[in-house]
Write a protein that binds this DNA or RNA. Sequence first.
DNA 1: CGTAAAATTGATCTGTCTCAACGTGGGTGG
DNA 2: CCACCCACGTTGAGACAGATCAATTTTACG
Lengths: 241, 241
Amino acid sequence: MSHASTWIRQLGCFAPLDAEDLKLLELAAGNARLYSTQDSLAKAGDSSDRMFVVLEGLACEYKMLPDGRRQILAYLFAGDMSDPRQLTLPYWDHSLSALWPSRILTLTTENVQRLESRSNILRAFNRYSLTKHAIAREWLVNVGNRTAMERVSHLLCEIHERMQSVGLSADNTFELPLTQSELADTLALSAVHVNRTLMELRRLKLVTFQNRHARIHDHQGLCGAAGFDHSYLRMAMLAGT
Amino acid sequence: MSHASTWIRQLGCFAPLDAEDLKLLELAAGNARLYSTQDSLAKAGDSSDRMFVVLEGLACEYKMLPDGRRQILAYLFAGDMSDPRQLTLPYWDHSLSALWPSRILTLTTENVQRLESRSNILRAFNRYSLTKHAIAREWLVNVGNRTAMERVSHLLCEIHERMQSVGLSADNTFELPLTQSELADTLALSAVHVNRTLMELRRLKLVTFQNRHARIHDHQGLCGAAGFDHSYLRMAMLAGT
DNA sequence: CGTAAAATTGATCTGTCTCAACGTGGGTGG
DNA sequence: CCACCCACGTTGAGACAGATCAATTTTACG
């Protein structure tokens, strides 16, 4: 199993890939680099001349306000990547950084063009990217309309489902090396309130956290608390609904 | 001046269009239909077999929660369109409806493919769509990290800039037929608080509203109140920064 | 072990929500 | 052409979810 397997498995969820596609993807995944927690990949304003693929670990996209407030816009788990179309723009409007020690692949415009010359890969990229945007829409709904309890539950349901689809969740347990402060900047809550909400989830026997791992004890209960409907995550997948 | 002029002018901001491109776009804009306030264009779950172009008027993308809460995800002003790539998906994950009497064009997959066979048009579509997503990211920041005053100001700065870029703003005045309740569902505030914030903006002599028109009296002051930085709107435009 | 980051807990504060009333202007039918 | 009407805007009072401030404990890691 190569270092790129999660990425390739994820792409395979969005379009069928043949042997030649797989070969090209494996090849492209050659020179991944290791990053540490908090290492910056790109800053808002930087030239947008490369895209990133998280092969292992965890990174995020975020925006900072001048006074230090931070909004996390997206998580990039193993198998996730930045938007390939961003390469057509002159600079980044948001920033990217690692949230945990990660193996991250950097692709140039030429690398990406070579991959996208394969119609299956192009199709997978596009459908993957559409899913990322569907997730962003749902985050806006989350932050805009849901209570703290619903927000945290909804995010956990989403992450669990994403992890499952790439085989990174077993026994309703998955690695989630996020601090409560990072969750706070994702969900637009204070870190203190995230803490209280997580403890409430524990008290309700819905989810527990140990050792940077989340364990869902009552999946149905959690989805209920979140008002979670997974259709936005599956829309672009081969299996359909 | 055709009915499609605002749309075409907007696309022309994202990629150079030649005579043949213009001809095809004009042709495609033939059978627009009139919609009234609140008319539905598509509901979440509907088959995603057409895209929409708002030639005149105002529409929006939104998501509803089962209990009736609504989050508006994007405004479609004259010249704006739904994401063409959505056509590759089986169904909508969000809904679209008119917010004001509008002239709206419906394009089928075939129509869009014909347009996208022109590389300039394809490029314009892509860059337009990237800008839409940059706006969505900024909305998440807005709802997640800014106060009511900042949120309202920021949204007004953004709309003003968008209107200006397609020539729908003159003398710092533009048509904005939104109710306070619609603003509330956009900004994740209550309608009552939107009202108080708008009155505060009026008291500060930054913006006034009359007759469904917004007039910005102190552009610099408004941008300051919002912490507004327009780079996310211009990133994909031909002029650059 | 020591140390710093992260989690936990308690007390208090506040921006915004909710509820409830009243004003108002533009569209419609009589 | 006027009167009604209804959606929208405005205003006030009180409530509350979540923020903030300030310790203290626990955990991770060199």
